[in-house]
């Protein structure tokens, strides 16, 4: 038996344990939030309760994954929120009335994202400013398309988002699927390693003969793709759209990536962690605070406090790791 399973190298065992603790932190914070909800309101822990509480987690998780791709390339997308809003407006108008035109527009959006990535790489531009400018562009387009809240989600989208699978609530299945797809795509494929490498050590990737231009455009295109999915999922839940519907997603998505163990530099991100981070934020944002009877005035503050607590826990684990 021992010949078949050689003992793991002892040297790395200690380091792995700390890494594990750090990697488990997002899951731990999610468990804590869930435990708090269960304690405050046991009835919420049910098929119906989860479906309700996690409903909005699906678009948030998709937006977080979108943000994760740009962060993997050492960039930041400050326009993802207004982009999600624009996609919502397109989905609720063109995609319903003229599906082909609508689909072409959404594909065009992904193309715009890829072009932005290429532009940022070729001209060596700060992504913060470019995406800041783009956030105005998406919001302007959304207001032009839908000056007043309205439109209607396509029926097939409503059907998808309203699916009631047996035993496991749909948002949980969707979150697992999102995490699995992005995990295998970015962490387990060879080109995923190139993409992460372009953020970790661009010069090395360049010298190895890979195109940094393609990597950057690819990362941005993936952001666009997941942004489109996020907007469609959001409309599937809310049934109609509003130009400002996604504005809060920019900060939520950045917070989700960081809560999930991602870092701003070095291509260090974790797709599974990002999805868990998004779920934690979605749960902590309103269900938990409502059950805790926190007055609406202080709900925003409680969000900030939760962020701080999780990050403080992370610092404590990392510090132990260093000693």
């Amino acid at each position: 038996m021992s010949a078949l399973a050689p003992p793991a190298p002892r040297q790395s065992a200690g380091i792995n344990w700390r890494r594990l603790a750090r990697a488990l932190l997002p899951a731990l914070s999610l468990t804590l939030v869930l435990a708090a909800i269960a304690w405050l309101n046991p009835r919420a822990i049910s098929y119906f309760g989860f479906t309700l509480m996690l409903n909005l987690a699906v678009p948030i998780a998709l937006a977080t994954i979108a943000q994760m791709f740009v962060i993997a390339g050492n960039d930041l997308d400050l326009s993802i929120g207004t982009f999600v809003g624009f996609v919502c407006c397109v989905t609720a108008t063109w995609l319903k009335d003229a599906p082909l035109v609508g689909a072409a527009m959404l594909l065009g959006c992904i193309g715009v994202y890829a072009a932005l990535g290429a532009l940022i790489y070729l001209r060596n531009l700060p992504s913060i400013v470019v995406t800041l400018g783009m956030s105005f562009v998406w919001q302007g387009l959304a207001i032009l398309l839908l000056p007043k809240p309205g439109g209607k989600a396509p029926d097939w989208l409503l059907a998808i988002m309203g699916v009631k699978p047996p035993f496991i609530p749909f948002p949980i299945l969707a979150a697992v699927a999102i995490a699995a797809v992005s995990y295998f795509g970015l962490m387990r494929t060879s080109y995923g390693a190139i993409l992460r490498g372009s953020g970790g050590n661009a010069i090395a990737i360049d010298r190895a003969g890979w195109s940094l231009l393609k990597a950057k455009a690819g990362l941005f295109a993936l952001t666009g793709l997941f942004g489109v999915l996020s907007g469609m999922a959001l409309v599937g839940i809310t049934t109609s759209a509003d130009a400002n519907i996604g504005n809060g997603y920019t900060l939520l998505s950045i917070a989700g990536v960081i809560l999930g163990g991602g870092e701003f530099v070095g291509g260090r991100v974790s797709p599974i962690g990002a999805v868990i981070g998004a779920l934690t934020l979605a749960l902590a944002a309103s269900p938990l605070l409502t059950f805790m009877h926190i007055p609406p005035d202080w709900q925003v503050a409680a969000n900030g406090a939760i962020l701080v607590i999780v990050l403080a826990a992370r610092v404590m684990i990392s510090q132990k790791g260093r000693e």
Binding site: L119, R123, N124, L125, P126, V129, V130, L132, G133, M134, S135, F136, V137, W138, Q139, G140, L141, A142, I143, L144, P147
Partner: peptide, 26 residues
């Protein structure tokens, strides 16, 4: 111009300006 066009143009001009100015050389 309407609010939508104003936002759209503001954004496009910011992106155009930053592209024209170019990033710092590494």
């Amino acid at each position: 111009v309407s609010a939508g066009v104003r936002l759209l143009l503001t954004g496009l001009i910011i992106v155009a300006v930053i592209t024209a100015a170019g990033g710092q050389k590494t």
